[in-house]
Design a protein around this nucleic acid. Structure first.
Lengths: 302, 302
DNA sequence: GCGCTCCATACCTCTAGAGATATCAGTCCA
DNA sequence: TGGACTGATATCTCTAGAGGTATGGAGCGC
């Protein structure tokens, strides 16, 4: 992109003169005397290298060069006025854009309602949603490539980020439909001992992973993970294929596969939480409003 | 249209920095040192009233305000570069626009071929055609609302305008089909004496009007004009309706109406001419080329 | 021929901004 | 803890351009 050659004030004067076709009237509109306007147009013509106006007795008309430049000048001036207004509106929180990360499984629960509510309350704001698991969301927040995130079991050691719980939910066992335990209405975690397990990799969401592991250990065994998949949908598909069982947050029930059965477990009060995350130093009022909507109360945000 | 608030050089620097997200790299691209770029961006932010970039350890990112301004700034800079190039091309004759006036009857003869030839030879030039009779074309040339004109029998006393004959043609008698003279293959002008006449008003094209009047007077009578119409098509329709006869340039034959007969006349060498007109002081090379194409030879133009 | 209108030039002042160099502050890593 | 990297501030020079007033030239109408 080359350095711009033409000064905007001259282009503005050019557009006004083109509309008036009278130096005196244009000068009046611009709030200047006629000689400075004449010189300003001359300077512009000097930069272009060609006349933009024909001056004749009792009249001023555009030259072909002037007619070509005029619409472009007008559009540029309009673009900049609009861009400036948009920038100011964005900074003040009236309009703009929020980049929101979300874990795929949350598309099944809180995300749809959030999108609907946010759009109703802030029609001038655009939500760009990006599916990513928890750890990449944390990284993206630090790198400022997203403005907020919806994630499971946020990490504890992130002082620069703020979190607010959106909801909590229990766990369910994920079994092939043909599995003997599928006949029961609910299963004890201990009954899964020895079965091959399918789980997301720990690095996709360490805290959730550790929570699931802790449930198994509390029941006396270490889960034998024989297959991993990043997406819960994929985990369920692998379970349906008979590659193992799983333990998942309750909302994963929404992934309906014919060959998969979800059963309550005896883990009692064990629950996993969904949180919204943001950067504490983020002054974007749109983020504050988003956290307010999700988190349910004021003050739980930047 | 308000005065523009943001200087183009700052906007240019803003766009480059937004692409690089690194002050040092952007400064290098712009060919300046890093401190001046930092100050330039600060000045821009001061005018906007909000930060456009987040500066963080090891990274620079756009704020929401910056993200809103960026596409508008980019489009404005692109528009202006394009407009400047278009203005320069137009002035040099490679592209641009020609506004051409033409008499409606000429749409039947020279205009189609002219448009085709001109578009083939100058694809980057747009011909804006405007139908108007001869006298308004002369006025429009003086007012510079058209660049050239195709007209009949140009006036003699227009020293500021140039003319070149495009073609000449004879006259024909225009008769209702049921008229007794329509049975003849050709008529003598004298045979039209006493018949009501339909002609365009003199002010639509004085010279052509006088030429027709002179033909009648040479045959010993003054045409009894009982109806006038500006367009030859309308003249013919009135003749068809039995309101009179007319004398018209030969190309008017192209207006085929069932109830109208065109017959050669005995006026011998009497001919009317079609000319292209332009302003002698017009330096637009596109006009010179147009006159060249129409007039057939170099030098017959500005 | 004179007065009016319209645009141009001359000359001046003033200022915003571009860009330089010098140097500082903050962060990160070995 | 020190060096490297990155962006910021301070200070300075220079220039383009905005806008003023004074005045001139061209064209037109009376």
């Amino acid at each position: 992109m080359e350095r711009p050659e033409l000064p905007l004030p001259q282009l503005h004067a050019f557009v006004v003169l083109a509309e008036e076709l009278h130096f005196g009237h244009a000068a009046e509109r611009l709030g200047v005397a006629q000689p400075p306007l004449s010189q300003q147009i001359r300077r512009l013509e000097s930069k272009v290298g060609h006349d933009l106006f024909h001056r004749g007795p009792g009249r001023v008309t555009l030259t072909p060069a002037g007619r070509e430049l005029l619409p472009a000048a007008r559009r540029a001036l309009t673009e900049l006025a609009g861009g400036l207004a948009a920038a100011r509106a964005a900074a003040s929180g009236r309009t703009g854009r929020i980049r929101l990360g979300f874990a795929a499984s949350l598309a099944l629960t809180v995300l749809p309602a959030l999108l609907r509510t946010y759009r109703e309350r802030f029609p001038g704001v655009r939500l760009d949603i990006h599916e990513m698991t928890t750890a990449p969301q944390i990284a993206a927040l630090h790198e400022k490539t997203i403005d907020a995130g919806l994630l499971r079991e946020p990490p504890a050691d992130e002082p620069e980020l703020g979190f607010a719980t959106v909801l909590t939910e229990g766990f369910v066992a994920v079994l092939p439909s043909a599995h003997p335990l599928a006949a029961q209405r609910s299963v004890r975690v201990a009954q899964l001992a020895g079965a091959p397990f399918v789980l997301p990799p720990r690095e996709a969401g360490p805290r959730l992973h550790d929570q699931i592991t802790a449930l198994c250990q509390a029941a006396g065994f270490v889960p034998l993970v024989t297959q991993r998949a990043v997406e819960w949908q994929t985990v369920c598909a692998l379970v349906e294929a008979g590659l193992g069982v799983s333990l998942a947050p309750a909302s994963i029930r929404r992934i309906r596969l014919k060959g998969v059965a979800f059963r309550g477990i005896d883990a009692g009060a064990a629950r996993t939480r969904v949180a919204v995350a943001w950067r504490e130093d983020d002054r974007n009022p749109l983020v504050a409003r988003l956290v307010e909507i999700i988190g349910g109360g004021p003050g739980a945000g930047p």
